[in-house]
Design a protein around this nucleic acid. Structure first.
Lengths: 350, 350
DNA sequence: TTGAAAGCGCTACCAC
DNA sequence: GTGGTAGCGCTTTCAA
């Protein structure tokens, strides 16, 4: 495995000169530059990123912590993150927290040990992230979910608004008995979606029966079980709003097993869109989040924050970074969602 | 950011002693050890993996190169890879090749520069991988797909056998006019699935009409377009075998648009199982690959290969590693697939 | 049981 | 323009 010294030797120049050629960080004569390049090719030399990172205090690596790799929402976001990272010379270390705060904390500690330049996170729990040492140690951008009373960098979508619109849509179809299967209520996306639903009901002067408010956890199983209970009620709802893709899947399975026709007997509106939602029957009515954009914007914001944080030199006064002109510091970007009413919702006729 | 020296200073010991305590690689008296541990906690010290990697020639990182992060097949595999990697102290850098050989080569070069300990790859192209310098530079385990005439480390599934069985199943239902939408035929999975289909037909003395052999590329669009053509034929097939999940999705979309009922008018058997396949109507008949296992076994094989490759010291005779007792060196593990006949296939009645 | 010193491959800061 | 030298944070001899 050739090193920079081998290249220097072969090109009969000094090591710093080779480094200069590699990084374009030094004035080098045409002739020398050519000799160096030739040597690089001849030896098939590839600079050691590890050594480079140690020296420069930059790993060109970011961590991306998500609760579930198998959820298409997150993999779509991941694609946006990965593409944008690559384009800017960053690699992505993927961490699956499995919706477990303990695992999440471990992953963050590991990312810290690896000296990643920054972290993108869809958190499961806010203690993981507000506690030391994680808060100070690298630029962090929240994605998809934010802590209550949050002020910091984040990219999310308008969960409340989209849930509100979808619910209004159901109401406009004539539905009066609406049920919701919520997500986890300890994170913003779960809470906001419930809140949007509530508001639309309130505005229409519709009651939300206790029994029609079912708490799920974003997992398939919870959607399945809650639907079973919901449809077993004496007064089953005529429309169900499901707060994420996996739960919608469980919901549809339950409906299938109960032989309840959708949308004839019950309408379904689900948060999250995905390839199959539009290609199977019934074609699902969904809220499409701009997943790729979410990933792209979050990554761009993270890169900006990384660039505004000089790699820790000899630390002088602590917190000297406070006055960074980093506009992103306190920025929360909220993206619009798109309603995709399709065939799983129908007009309610008594 | 505290370093090992800060810890040493605070604990009033030498740097190597701290290192010894951290790695359990040195006999240290109880008392000193305790002092060191206390200092570590007090300073909230986290060893710098970058420096450690530079010194030890191990990054505890592997690269995972896949053609499509949004394909649930690969993300399910990814979960197996990630879990197993973590359990063994490895991190995963994810690389999306987008089925593009050029991108793939770039990613491999980058992984090399980052000095990953090894690579797992579902290749799009075999030149990427057989050419220098990639072949020699890190342990490589193929996953899901192997080059023609391959001898090396790989974990794949029995594509040929599963396609054969699925086709026989369709035949047993009375179908005589079967069509196939193949995957990319320059990789083993695509080829083997076609071959299995062919064999079953041959054995049953059924012809494969030229027009019923449609070449797809594993993408949704190709499944969609080929189905459109297929069902527009004068003699449309009564059963279609689709060679992966995305194409099956396109297939179902085409059927929906053409208002062709499945399974009443045409039976569909698809390669790859996924959550939604069993939860929507029609519940899809699929071939379920052991995705998690695939990832787990491949990662385990890679770890074994990494451990049998001493980190390049001063290279003496080249190829001295040849005599490694690495049984995996030439090993190809083939996992069984499972047929899941469901509701998208029905008996053919004239 | 412990410490001093060397060095992994690179970049940055000097001189010239 | 170019080269010498120091040093990033750690592990690994080698002595004591």
């Amino acid at each position: 495995m050739p090193t920079i010294r081998d290249v220097a030797r072969l090109a009969r120049v000094s090591v710093p000169t080779v480094s200069g050629v590699l990084n374009g960080t030094r004035n080098v004569s045409k002739k020398t530059s050519l000799r160096v390049r030739t040597a690089i090719v001849a030896l098939d030399y590839h600079p050691d990123q590890v050594a480079r990172s140690l020296r420069s205090r930059r790993t060109q690596t970011i961590g991306f912590v998500i609760p579930d790799v198998t959820n298409p929402f997150f993999t779509d976001v991941l694609r946006g993150v990965e593409d944008t990272a690559r384009q800017n010379g960053y690699s992505v270390i993927l961490c699956n927290s499995n919706e477990d705060p303990v695992v999440e904390r471990k992953r963050l500690a590991m990312l810290y040990s690896r000296r990643v330049d920054g972290v993108l996170i869809a958190p499961t729990d806010f203690r993981s992230v507000t506690e030391r040492p994680l808060r100070r140690d690298f630029p962090l951008v929240y994605i998809d979910r934010i802590p209550p009373g949050f002020s910091g960098a984040a990219v999310v979508t308008d969960n409340l608004g989209a849930a509100y619109e979808a619910t209004r849509y159901l109401i406009s179809l004539g539905h009066r008995r609406l049920a919701i299967i919520t997500g986890r209520l300890n994170i913003s996306s779960g809470r906001d979606r419930l809140e949007g639903f509530r508001r639309a009901l309130q505005e229409a002067n519709l009651p939300l029966a206790e029994e029609h408010l079912r708490q799920g956890d974003f997992g398939l199983e919870s959607g399945y079980l809650q639907t079973l209970e919901l449809m077993g009620l004496k007064n089953p709802p005529t429309a169900i709003f499901s707060c994420n893709n996996k739960m919608t899947l469980g919901l549809m399975r339950a409906l299938g097993e109960l032989r309840i026709a959708c949308p004839e007997q019950v309408s379904v509106f689900g948060f999250d869109d995905f390839e199959w939602a539009a290609n199977f029957s019934p074609r699902l009515s969904t809220i499409a989040q701009p997943t790729y954009e979410l990933g792209r914007l979050a990554m761009e914001m993270l890169i900006r924050r990384i660039q505004n944080t000089r790699p820790e030199g000899k630390d002088k006064d602590k917190d000297q970074d406070k006055d960074d002109k980093d506009v992103d510091q306190q920025q929360v970007i909220t993206l619009k969602n798109e309603l995709k009413p399709r065939d799983s919702t129908a007009r309610f006729t008594q």
